[in-house]
Design a protein around this nucleic acid. Structure first.
Lengths: 205, 205
DNA sequence: CACAATTATGAGCAAATACTCAGATCTTGA
DNA sequence: TCAAGATCTGAGTATTTGCTCATAATTGTG
């Protein structure tokens, strides 16, 4: 909408188990409803119905519809960054090819669950400045890490590492996402192999 | 969506010059309004207001809101395929690198006008089965042509041309689109150079 | 000019939907 | 056990918005 931003914070803190359970039911139902109907047609009443609760209960945990979307996206981003952080703490492979393979595999795995939900999340994110900011920060972090990696690796021969890093990140995220979400999805293994080959040959020059 | 599809055909044929003029004003206004507010918040009343006509006039040329979106997308697809067809009739360069450059440049040029409008078009297209089908056909054609190109070119050394073609098309379309639509857009020239380099090194093996 | 066809108008209707609130029901802790 | 707090309920409200239609204005034609 053209008007100002809406709050996104949860309305109350659950104090009983059933409350937390209800919260989870709402989120699960919302994920399904949004994936099936899209954001606009995924009405809050429909979400409540699918969750098996009343519409009033939904609004006890989420101040508005956008907040539900925000929570789902936050979850996904947190999962992704957590997985990436876990990989980064351990020792990375030597060759740039195997390093790329690790991260491409991460991206593939992150998208295999529910490509349609994920597509919807990213498409509808522009509804909130806060979410846009969050996505932007994650992206910038990824580009930054990639750039450092490219600059420090002996096999890498690209001149403009800043541009290269942006290209690599955009390519991995978007192509993986798109090719797995298509009606006739590409084979995940082949995608991984070809994507890794493309990136490796590119940066090796 | 769960409900049925709506018609998309125009309501009437303009018979006077002012009618055609009004039609164009509507489309131009819609492009701006959709780009600024998104599809959902881009109301038909707002479009009419921006076009400087009454809401009734709008509905004399478009049976419903989706039809306006469809017309805008159709225009873009037609422009794109026309540009591609024009290139394909003439003689292509010899080297695979220069061939890629031609098509990457086409993609970049197609996105330079209004990346935000284009993003909105492609995101909202799923509202119509007909549009989805149209987009899918264009995409399949592009993949098909690319595959033929890869199989027939002496410099190309990829084994699985089917997968490679899909990867190439997805990469060009999505990465170009994304990197040009970002708040801090990448330099178009650099993007072209790096993208061409990546694709060339990839298929040369 | 006269008349028909085309185009333009915009108040208002019908439907969809995000969200509220007053009260019912359940859970906890002493 | 029982009161206080937490949670749940769902009919109803307020608003938005796609779209209609009766009427007016404009244009083309003989």
């Amino acid at each position: 909408m053209s008007s100002g931003q809406r709050r996104i914070q949860p309305r109350k803190q659950p104090r009983q188990v059933r409350a937390e359970l209800t919260r989870q039911r709402i989120l699960t139902a919302a994920a399904h409803v949004f994936a099936d109907h899209g954001y606009a047609a995924g009405t809050t009443n429909r979400i409540a119905e699918r969750a098996g609760i009343s519409i009033g209960s939904l609004y006890q945990y989420f101040p508005n519809k956008d907040a539900i979307l925000a929570e789902l996206l936050t979850r996904h981003l947190d999962d992704g960054t957590a997985a990436a952080a876990k990989v980064l703490t351990g020792p990375l492979p030597e060759s740039i090819e195997e390093i790329f393979r690790v991260f491409v595999r991460l991206a593939v795995e992150a998208h295999l669950d529910d490509p349609h939900l994920l597509r919807m999340l990213l498409e509808q994110a522009p509804r909130s400045d806060e979410l846009l900011e969050r996505i932007g920060r994650v992206k910038r972090d990824m580009v930054g890490h990639t750039r450092v990696l490219l600059e420090g690796h002996p096999e890498v021969r690209v001149a403009d590492t800043a541009t290269a890093a942006r290209l690599v990140i955009a390519t991995v995220e978007l192509a993986v996402h798109d090719l797995l979400a298509e009606p006739d999805p590409i084979d995940a293994g082949k995608l991984e192999d070809e994507m890794v080959a493309m990136l490796t040959r590119y940066v090796k020059g």
